[in-house]
Design a protein around this nucleic acid. Sequence first.
DNA 1: CAAAATAATGCAGTTGTATGCAATAAATAA
DNA 2: TTATTTATTGCATACAACTGCATTATTTTG
Lengths: 249, 249
Amino acid sequence: MLKAERQKYIMTKLIEDQKVVTTDLALALDLSEDTIRRDLNELDSKKLLEKVYGGAVQVSRKSTDVFDIYISAEEEKKQIVTKALSLLRDDQVIIMSGGSTNLVFAKLIPANLKATIYTYSLPIAMQLSQHPNIDLIFIGGKMQKNAMVTIGMDVIQVVSKIKADICFIGASSINVKQGLTEIGYEISIVKKAMIEASDKVVSMFSSDKLNTKMPHSVCDLSQLDTIVTNLDPQDARLEEYKKAGVLVL
Amino acid sequence: MLKAERQKYIMTKLIEDQKVVTTDLALALDLSEDTIRRDLNELDSKKLLEKVYGGAVQVSRKSTDVFDIYISAEEEKKQIVTKALSLLRDDQVIIMSGGSTNLVFAKLIPANLKATIYTYSLPIAMQLSQHPNIDLIFIGGKMQKNAMVTIGMDVIQVVSKIKADICFIGASSINVKQGLTEIGYEISIVKKAMIEASDKVVSMFSSDKLNTKMPHSVCDLSQLDTIVTNLDPQDARLEEYKKAGVLVL
DNA sequence: CAAAATAATGCAGTTGTATGCAATAAATAA
DNA sequence: TTATTTATTGCATACAACTGCATTATTTTG
């Protein structure tokens, strides 16, 4: 039995019984108590449980943040979205797609901004529901569960009736020739509708998305007004995008 | 045997067994462990699996709980909703209102249940998006931000078109004369629509809601099929409800 | 087609990790 | 308090993983 497997077992048992006992685990897994203790210490230091004399108990939930989604390279994303905050104005109507970059953006929207935001992403809606001055409208439909966004015709229908000032689109892939492309067909058509519905189109992404390609086209560069990346706008890698008429922040 | 073929085999085995062991794979594929390790490293860097000491395991589905909402008296609520799990069947169409009791219910729905669930509560949708076998449909509209639910005509319109087998309604207040009542007008009409749309109506709440009253009527007792509380069904406080024809769990 | 470049594989030596055991320390229970 | 249980520490052993290198396929190029 692998160590990782064993620790998973311990976590499962912990959730079932609310606690685990060192000696019981050693018996059940046919291992020395020392090993179990080492596992418990490890899991404890990862804050996945709390070690106590004789075993371990569940970790008491924190309460500062409403939810707990892992965001890779969060610092980098903060830098990106901070640049985009300058695009926000009071009384705008905004559409936001899903994606962790947009989620970071939602977290950083200043508390005094008054605006109307449409979104179809659950985490973003959760985040924005904490904001005191934003009118929030969730676009319903069938959920794509892993991404926690709604998709399909219901979404398209609602989006196509919005008259938005600006939309913020997450990007899976972008390159000069094909523009924005997506891995999923359904997401691609939703994003097309977002672009149709908005006066201004902004996309935020990190530089590793540059010059990559996915199967389903969203739009070409001419339809993007602004892109925001972690690179300096003067960076050579962005040269071609600027030539195509896109504003680079 | 091609490398690609081999890696496919590894991925298949990983899904079957939840894990793979380096030495076993080397034996089964008649290759050195080094080669297997190189494969595992490759697949790891593609994030298709997670390499661990001795082998590899499946990529950890984000932490079990995606978010972190404080639920008062969670243990009591667990006891209530556990009783209600017996009402669930495969292939049902279900509508769920918001509320922390329903959220606890959502957490405890067995992983093997296959059903379609409509909801207009963000936390419940987040929770259910973790469920492997549920078709989830979110009912969009304007968000009532403190409660994290959508409300208004958009919601009513969608709900009134659903043909549901069963709905689970959280209760603010219930008493024998007025039935279910709510503090907010908008929520009350959404719940009315839910009841219209469902063959069977279930409400779960703790006993402190019994014999209390709010301004806006939802329905009277005759429209409720089942109520689920923390009390023993034989408890005297539930006598009148049973006389009114409600099934008490 | 042959030659060259590239990739894949296995091997040996080294490094790192996991585990159990024994001795000792700390915490709990009587 | 003492006795008992549980934890910690250092150490030895076994095994897994990594490194660099040689060998063999495979692909690319002239």
